[in-house]
Simulated scan of single mutants.
Amino acid sequence: MISFLKIKQKKMEVLSKGNKGKTIIILTGLGCSFDEWYIITKTLSKTSRVVIVHRPGLGESEIGSDVRNTGAVVKELLDLISVLEITEPIVLVGHSYGGLCVQHFAKSYPKMVAGMVLVDSTSVDLHELDELDLPILDETDSDEVWLEKCISYSSMKQEQLRILLNPTLSEKQKSFPKEIRQRLLDFQIRPSLYKAMYLEISNWKQDAEIIKSLETTLNVPLIVLGRDVEFCIKLGLQGGLPEEELRILEEKWKELISRQGNLSSNSKIVFAKNSSHSTHMDRPDIIIHSISEVLN
């Protein structure tokens, strides 16, 4: 069920499913819709209460004029927990940028967290990716390129974005219910999405340093999920990218994922076979299994 809650004086779009068992809160990646998690939330809601939100600017959540960084997400999460009257520690799941937000929350409020699953999460050492020598990959995928794109897209009208981006669904998403398919298509053509992405990317290196400075070692169950190096290299090669650069990037990413195991004294690292960065779409089964393991 989708509802609109007043969080930090802004309207936020919240999807809640299930009403028994422990509460799982999922934070999506940069520019990602909560509807991409349809299979995962549907399965988990049979035994747990699942809550997944659109951060300000995503979906129908109001963006406002506040700073958009992981610190703001931590405050919104605290407010959400209060509004939903959740009193027990929660299981936190974060994909990509959402994983960076989860790390910030868990290190700030360790007693409120019962367990964590990080899904190919952005690392607190993400600055190390900039130090790699990747001239061809950087032409299309550097922070600077993304910031420029986001500025351009955020100034366009929805109809312009529809023509330019021509949003499509993956084969798996085509099997989702009709209303969800439509929401996934509409999600990508809102100018506010790109404003939010611009602000989040602008601040994430500074956020990472703040998170690193929080000297908290957790001892809750933590499963760190990473993508499949060879699978990602193969995808990149199909897109005409150079193998040497792809390998340098993927090996560094794998190293950064592995380091996330140090967040908790009770951690496990799993690399999901046949998974790209979008693990939640490629391997929902492994995420469901990991969350279930943490719950138990």
Results as ranks from 00 to 15, higher is better:
residue 207 D to T: 01
residue 263 L to Y: 03
residue 233 I to A: 02
residue 256 L to C: 10
residue 219 N to M: 08
residue 241 L to W: 05
residue 220 V to D: 08
residue 236 G to K: 00
residue 227 R to C: 04
residue 198 Y to Q: 06
residue 220 V to S: 06
residue 242 P to M: 05
residue 193 L to K: 07
residue 244 E to Y: 12
residue 268 K to R: 15
residue 242 P to C: 11
residue 252 K to W: 13
residue 244 E to K: 11
residue 254 K to V: 03
residue 244 E to Q: 12
residue 210 I to N: 01
residue 204 W to K: 10
residue 210 I to E: 04
residue 264 S to W: 08
residue 208 A to L: 09
residue 210 I to C: 03
residue 249 L to K: 02
residue 230 E to F: 07
residue 196 A to W: 04
residue 200 E to H: 05
residue 199 L to G: 01
residue 208 A to V: 02
residue 265 S to V: 09
residue 208 A to T: 00
residue 222 L to R: 02
residue 208 A to E: 03
residue 266 N to H: 11
residue 221 P to C: 15
residue 224 V to Y: 05
residue 219 N to G: 14
residue 201 I to K: 09
residue 214 L to H: 10
residue 210 I to M: 08
residue 252 K to L: 13
residue 246 L to S: 02
residue 226 G to M: 05
residue 209 E to G: 03
residue 207 D to R: 00
residue 255 E to P: 12
residue 220 V to E: 08
residue 263 L to N: 07
residue 212 K to H: 10
residue 224 V to N: 05
residue 256 L to V: 12
residue 213 S to V: 14
residue 212 K to L: 14
residue 218 L to Q: 02
residue 209 E to H: 09
residue 234 K to F: 06
residue 218 L to P: 02
residue 224 V to L: 13
residue 195 K to W: 11
residue 199 L to D: 12
residue 200 E to R: 05
residue 230 E to D: 14
residue 221 P to M: 14
residue 249 L to I: 06
residue 238 Q to M: 11
residue 210 I to A: 03
residue 195 K to G: 07
residue 253 W to L: 12
residue 231 F to V: 10
residue 256 L to D: 00
residue 221 P to F: 08
residue 217 T to W: 13
residue 227 R to H: 15
residue 204 W to D: 05
residue 264 S to A: 14
residue 217 T to P: 03
residue 240 G to L: 08
residue 216 T to P: 00
residue 210 I to Y: 01
residue 215 E to V: 11
residue 261 G to F: 00
residue 236 G to W: 02
residue 208 A to Q: 03
residue 234 K to D: 12
residue 213 S to P: 06
residue 227 R to K: 14
residue 268 K to H: 13
